[in-house]
Every structure is written in C-alpha cells, then in structure tokens.
Simulated assay, not measured.
Amino acid sequence: MNYKRFLNALTAFAAQCLFVLLVQDNVAAAAQSIPELHVQPAERAPGALNTTILAAARAGARIVAVGQRGVVLLSDNDGKTYRQAMSVPVSSTLTSVWFIDASTGWSVGDWGAIIKSTDGGETWVAQRSDTQVDQPLFSVYFKNGKEGWAVGLWSLMLHTTDSGANWAVVKLLPPAGAKKADRNLYAMFADTKGNLFVACEQGRVMRSSDGGVSWNYVETGYAGSFWSGIALRDGTILVGGLRGKIYRSANGGDTWAAVPTPYASSITGMQQLPDQSIRMVGLEGVTLSSHDDGMSFTGYQRPDRKTLTAVIDTQKGHSVLFSVDGPTASQ
C-alpha cells in the first residue's frame, strides 16, 4: 500500500523531528477505529510560547504562527516577541496557515479542522472538523477572499467558493499505474499566473492550469516525499522534502532538475524574501540560502541541531525561524 511506503519513509526520521512524528501519528490514527471525540478549544497558557510551531504567515505587518494543541502565536514587532491568540476553537494540531490580507485568514490541521479569523488571528471560528476519521489537513491556500483549497492525507482535497462556509470534497483521479488517488498532499501554492501546485509524496507534484477544475500529476524524477513548495516571483517553482532533496522547474512544472545542496537534512519550510533571495529550513538545525533563483544553495547548521519547522519574512526583509521549541532566533 502507498501509505506504508509513507510510514517507512517517515519512520527513518522519527527520532530526529517531531514534525515527522506528528504526521506519522495521524496516519496510524486514521487507520484505526477512532473513539468518539469532541472538539475542544485551545488552552491559553504561558507554555504556548515554547510549543512546536509548524507554519507561519503574514497578516499585514503581523506574523501569525500555528502549531501543536491549537496554539496560535502573534507577533506585531517582526518576531521580537509573541503572545497567544485570544481564542482558538480547536485544540488539535494546526499544520498550515494562510492570510489574504491583514485581517482574514484560515488555518487547518488534525481531524480535518478548518478555522477562520477575520481580525488578524486574534480570534478564530470553526468552519469544519471530522472527529469520526482523523484525516488531517496539511496545507491551506486561498486565491482571494472567496475561493480556497485545503489538502491532506490520502489525497484529501477540499474546495470552497464562499469563504469557507461550505467545503466540498474534490474527487481526484489516481496517478498513472495506481488504482486510486491515495497520495498524501503536503503543500499547496500558486504561481503569479494562477497555476496551482501541490507538493506530494513519491516525488510527485500535482498541477492545475484551469483554476483547480482539473489536476494532473507531474513526475520530478525523485521517489521521496516533498513537504514544502513555493513559486518564486519570476515563475520558478521549487519543491523540497526528504533527505534534503530540492527540485526546480523553470517552465511551470513541465520539467524538473535536482538542485545540489550542502546538507541531506529534510526540508520543512521555504520562503522568498523581499530581496528575491530564498531561505529554506529543515531538520537538524539546517538553513539553506539562495541568491540565484534556487539554482544553487549555501548552508548553515546550528550547533544545537534544533529541528526547524517554518520560516517567514519580516517587514525589514529578514527571516524569522520556527522550531519544535517555538519561535527561534534567526542566523
């Protein structure tokens, strides 16, 4: 089964990265009979500042970071200090966050949870959850205030055209040679032309050139999972994941080439900074930087080997890093 290959791949890194363990636990839970659960709001506590953070986004000048136990952290001074959001309706792990402006954003996570904020992340309301089957969502993307997608375990793709008031399941076709669509979908993003992409397992990238009406699988030449992806401002596409592999496409995803990197630590997040440079973060305290549209990277490894999980740019053009211990000082 495809998800067994997924489990085997993640197990190899389980001792190194809680980021991976969270995903692996979700897979195991989804394969079992789930007891009746009730959605509980996240607790507000001082320890939230040291919670594992899995994703971050900008809401205007504010940084919004999300992670374990429904924790949402906010910073209004470019990451110098953080405080916990006033109210979050779920205590399940949040894996992705997306804001379309300074006020309106969405976050997704375990139990298929989708929550929405209209005040820059201060308060949130629940839009969706499924406590019968823990089919977690790994990524959320909105192209405007109305239309958006959320993707996750076993090819789960949800689509909304009414700001998340209603979510419909998108039925995906299986990839070539497979009997069903059961690939894990990790990171969704779009390029400046409106083409949609999803970084997936088994070295695949899903692509839609018609606004999500239809999707096709693009082979990159890699067999491992891609956990993160980004479309640069010039249209270049980058995806990265297991064993530090990074693949690059300069033609909208038609063809791909592997990019040499100085480390083999898996990539967990990537961001393009205002000066067009690229910063990536990963396991074992590794950060990677590129100043040539991702054609080459230099690297640095933290002495403490702290697992890094997300990266976001500041208003001044620097980058803020996040880890299994919360916000982390950048190099």
Rank of each mutant, 00 (worst) to 15 (best):
G203N: 04
V281T: 11
R243N: 13
G79E: 13
V71E: 02
G221V: 01
P41M: 06
G148N: 04
Y186R: 02
M280G: 09
F138H: 11
A258D: 04
A65G: 02
S117E: 06
H318G: 15
S249L: 05
E284G: 00
Q68M: 11
G224A: 13
S330I: 00
M188G: 05
Y3R: 15
S129C: 08
L49S: 10
F6D: 15
T328Y: 09
M280A: 14
F322R: 11
S228F: 08
A250P: 11
Q16H: 12
W98P: 00
K306N: 13
A199T: 07
L185P: 06
V125R: 12
S214H: 10
G294F: 01
R183E: 14
V90F: 11
A231G: 15
K306C: 09
H318W: 03
M295W: 07
W124L: 03
S249K: 10
A102T: 07
S228D: 09
L173A: 15
L273K: 09
P89W: 11
Q272I: 00
V320S: 03
V324K: 08
I63S: 01
G60V: 03
Q301W: 01
R183L: 15
D162L: 12
R305D: 01
A168T: 12
I267S: 02
I100Y: 00
G252Q: 13
N166Y: 09
G47F: 12
D234Q: 12
L22S: 14
Q301N: 01
G326M: 05
S225Y: 05
L158E: 11
R305L: 01
D130V: 02
G285I: 00
N50D: 12
P35D: 06
V140L: 01
F226L: 11
W106M: 10
L156W: 06
S319H: 10
D234I: 09
C200F: 06
Y217K: 08
H38G: 10
D25K: 12
V71I: 14
A264G: 04
D182C: 10
T93I: 13
D191I: 01
A85K: 04
P175W: 02
R279W: 01
V140I: 07
Q32I: 04
S75K: 05
A178Y: 10
R62E: 12
N77G: 08
V140D: 00
I34K: 03
T236R: 02
H318I: 04
N50M: 05
W256D: 11
A31R: 07
V90W: 08
W111Y: 15
A12S: 13
